[in-house]
Write a protein that binds this DNA or RNA. Structure first.
Lengths: 337, 337
DNA sequence: ATGAAAGCGCTAACAC
DNA sequence: GTGTTAGCGCTTTCAT
């Protein structure tokens, strides 16, 4: 049987109010009393009931974190950064996987609302706006990462998608490529749209007309990357820009099945740094600052707790560009895909 | 401002007790009254405060799920199965990533205890036993998956590790291999030990003496799979048994760097089905029933809620063995690594 | 500096 | 079948 604050109070010979003050490091407790309380806590192995606390203060110490794909190592790093940040501040992070499914996202958001979590961080699907308004009703602050929610004034951390895509494609142009294909996520996803804008910008600057046979969109999954590339290869592009990590895996497979070599037959520029894999050809890529992204998101949320009325901040982080990196230069990280 | 049960009661012209009864589908409410309550709930957009409910019933509707590596797609499927099962029963799943770190595991277990979750499912590290006893003190049931906790009488779902490893290695033996190397996770992890037993059993049966230069253990990560294999290859094995998915990725890389082809130069038998990858050579593998494993774990926990005194159940699921599967036969799943 | 007491929103025992 | 009420364990005024 777990002990309660009353038991601690009795053992220390004080009231439960005093124990509570000690627990939350409030001032106005004599050191001698404080030590007696601490000793009693220790002796009983007392741990506060966080549920009772949450009810009383009308807010739990849980942070809800909804990620569109927990298997994607990019998001995994983001998760770790957020956990690290909140752990220091006594919050626990409740992780939810939306799988890019607006229905699951809605379910989790409502649940987090019912649990009266302290705050929410999420990578929104394109349908998140409506449900997010419900959280605002109960004053649960939200930080959006990776993708914008255009309709809402929310704290946001994203990366410079358009600029990075522009630089990657510009690099292909400089290498003399004219037929540059691209594989993108649906343009309803903000990152897809922004990266497409970068692609267009680079071509326009080089006065290469847009060829719609070289542009394919789909779900940001390996399977779509694969099938879209199979179609694209019929058009004989000399280079390809892939806009998301998972799609790139499918791109690689399709190219390999076709017996083409990289970069001789087809040159690649892609978004995201690939996980370490047995096979990894030379390519250019934009590495997103995933840990920083998580850190910043946590920071914004903690700031918001202190200043609920502060205007929404939109942070844009920079990717690191790597041009024509060969397999050998890839770093071996602790964990694979 | 969110509405409360009292507001609903007032609007429907009943007491809050009746509203509560309607909410939890208790009997003894007239249909006419029930409908009035439902209408009021709808009109106010009322959602129960789960925190208050948790405090009152001394148990939340949250299931804690601690996974040793959320990026591993094997566990990802397990997570999905567990979420699916509990969603049907009105529980929410709180996902935590222990990263194989006993300290993080301890932190999360204590947190889940303080949150008075309804139950916990976890893939334990080798140091879990002590902390798990703390949960027993507050009557929080625990189901252990993938790995046993020897010291404790807990509901458990695992796979037939020894038998599967035995069959895989036996297959290598039948193909005439005498120098069969193996890469294993530390034997303090139950799965590592069991799979090693299977390996030894197959060699013993074939009267092949154990050669300790062909046996390497490490952390179940890609990096260790890679470095251990580099060493093993100096011994010129003709076959290799890799005991975990992440390690296998490192194995493949090391073999490729050495310029060896699979299966001609070295034959592979491995645990786990690899995620879809651009490069994937022929090998034998034991596919774990990951979805079933999650389903069964959820089932055991739900049963335990109903019958707290039932003796602990130890379920052992069977892997599906695939021998000498070529790349082309691999199924393209929706998502990559 | 400390204690007494109210109350967070809900459920369940008991009364009718 | 429905209402009244006590109380889950904690925090936070308000007294002293």
């Amino acid at each position: 049987m777990a002990s309660h604050i009353k038991d601690v109070a009795r053992l220390a010979g004080v009231s439960s109010a005093t124990v509570s003050r000690v627990l939350s490091n409030k001032p106005h407790v004599r050191d001698e009393v404080k030590n007696r309380v601490l000793a009693a806590i220790d002796e009983l192995g007392y741990e506060p009931n966080r549920v009772a606390r949450s009810l009383r203060v009308q807010r739990s110490s849980i942070i809800g974190l909804i990620i569109s794909d927990i298997q994607n190592s990019f998001f995994n790093t983001v998760v770790r950064a957020i956990e690290d940040s909140f752990y220091e501040h006594g919050y626990a992070v409740f992780l939810c996987n939306s799988d890019e499914d607006p229905e699951k996202e809605r379910m989790y958001l409502n649940l987090l609302k019912a649990e009266r979590v302290a705050g929410v961080i999420l990578t929104p699907t394109s349908k998140a706006a409506e449900t997010l308004k419900g959280l605002a009703q109960v004053d649960i602050p939200v930080v959006v990462i990776d993708r914008l929610v255009a309709e809402l004034e929310l704290d946001t951390v994203t990366t410079n998608n358009q600029e990075s895509a522009y630089q990657l494609v510009k690099h292909l142009v400089k290498q003399g490529h004219k037929r540059i294909a691209t594989v993108l996520p649906d343009l309803s996803i903000a990152t897809g749209l922004e990266r497409f804008e970068g692609y267009k910008q680079a071509l326009k600057e080089a006065e290469i007309p847009l060829d719609h046979d070289l542009i394919k969109t789909g779900k940001p999954f390996t399977s779509d990357g694969y099938s879209l590339t199979k179609e694209l290869l019929k058009e004989n592009p000399s280079a390809l820009f892939s806009a998301t990590k998972l799609m790139t895996l499918g791109v690689l497979r399709a190219i390999q099945e076709q017996g083409l070599s990289i970069p001789e037959d087809i040159t690649l520029a892609v978004f995201d740094k690939l996980d370490w894999m047995p096979y990894q050809p030379q390519m250019s890529f934009a590495e997103q600052p995933s840990y920083d992204l998580g850190k910043q998101a946590a920071h914004l949320l903690l700031e918001r707790f202190k200043m609920p009325e502060r205007p929404a901040q939109k942070q844009i982080l920079k990717t690191t560009l790597h041009f024509d990196v060969k397999e050998a230069e890839m770093v071996l990280t602790a964990q694979g895909p």
